[in-house]
Write a protein that binds this DNA or RNA. Structure first.
Lengths: 230, 230
DNA sequence: CGGTATCCCCCGCGATACTG
DNA sequence: CAGTATCGCGGGGGATACCG
């Protein structure tokens, strides 16, 4: 079954590698800059580590990435080669199409931990006040273990905490997972959700007013989604 | 296993549909204009009809195609919707990447029947003499049952025959499957293979000289393939 | 032509547990 | 942190036959 397609067409040869389960997500993580094994895993919470390792090995054999000693930290990191960097075009095409035409979001797609992890990559820390800004996120509709998150934002780095980080939050945001997910996807405007009270923000007035500019949303959010099909 | 990825990311939602086995090839066939079941099948010889039907049903449910009564012939045809037509960008990105970076062609990718089927879609009949032009193809290295093919070319239509069509060939082309496959992929120039005698053409001089202009090759052939990786 | 039906087998994948 | 080990299920591949 993992044999090829018996064709030398470039679409077929590429698909032998790329159209395997989980593969587009692994490539997506690498393209947005993840390098460490567990960093990739956080972006794909439901993949088994053994399968992730298998996929990474396949990508290495295909010349898409290299496993290199990590200079900054201990251990190894996965780095894209030129062939791997050019996969951005493939992931981008899939994402663009998905933004416009993929199925609607179901309740079991709504993983709050993944949402916060995705958001933490797309925060404009330059637009925040100097120093540290702590944002507490609360999803009243989520299961107890994934109801509270904290984003500890500094100029060069944003950390996601599952427990109170020890610093008092500067801003507290309360909303449902679906509302924030659809805002992140660009399917609802944040402004309307704030006005309608479906997103509630507590904190200093200056921070509350600046907050919408911190959220960069999904890279695909600007792409218009046509009317749902009948 | 065919459950989703548990993410509302557009890349993940699109991949649930598109990153299944065979799916990129099915979409490719639809994008190059195949509409009938057996027409799609000829472009994907190794797929089981039951699985092809399953994939087509998934695409219909996803709103990518519609099954409509075929006006010209009896039976039904599969037509892409707007969502389906926009998949050309995805197939195109995969094909471009594959042309540049996918693995080299192995012997078991070299299906001569598929090669001839792919070529028949990309023949410039406008460049041929008026009326009917019959090209006989011979692959001395192929198994007996797929050694001989005939392309019966008319202005609006090209037919692939597995048996002598009853018309004398105007041109007879003899070469190995690999050489012609790599020419079709743009990995070797036809001119050099003709000069080197690895492609032999028999027939009237005017036709022999015109023949190279009839072959439009793969749509991805113009894309340069970087040096093979080390 | 455009599929369906059936049986069998394999292995990719998921789940759980464990480790240097 | 970065994986490995083990077990079990079921989707997909192969072959063959059948049908409106």
């Amino acid at each position: 079954m993992q044999d090829g397609y018996g064709q030398f067409c470039p679409v077929a040869l590429a698909s032998e590698l790329l159209a395997q389960r989980w593969m587009p997500l692994v490539v997506r993580e690498l393209c947005v800059g993840a390098t460490r094994f567990n960093e990739i895993r956080r972006g794909i919470p439901r993949i088994r580590p053994s399968l992730l390792k298998q996929r990474l090995d396949e990508l290495e054999r295909a010349g898409v990435l290299q496993r290199v000693p990590d200079a900054k930290q201990e251990g190894y990191g996965y780095q894209l080669t030129e062939a791997g960097r050019e996969l951005r075009a493939v992931v981008g095409a899939i994402g663009q199409w998905g933004q416009r035409w993929a199925r609607d979001i179901r309740d079991d797609d709504l993983d709050p931990g993944w949402l916060v992890w995705a958001m933490h990559r797309r925060l404009d820390t330059q637009a925040m006040p100097p120093g540290r800004t702590v944002i507490a996120l609360t999803f009243p509709d989520a299961a107890a273990t994934e109801r509270h998150f904290w984003l500890v934002c500094e100029r060069q780095q944003v950390d996601v905490c599952l427990k109170p980080p020890g610093f008092e939050p500067d801003l507290t945001v309360t909303t449902s997972v679906r509302v924030l997910a659809e805002i992140w996807r660009g399917l609802r405007p944040l402004s309307a959700e704030l006005r309608g009270g479906r997103v509630r923000v507590e904190g200093a007035v200056a921070l509350k007013r600046a907050f919408p500019r911190w959220l960069l949303l999904s890279a695909y959010a600007p792409i218009e989604r046509p009317r749902v099909r009948g």
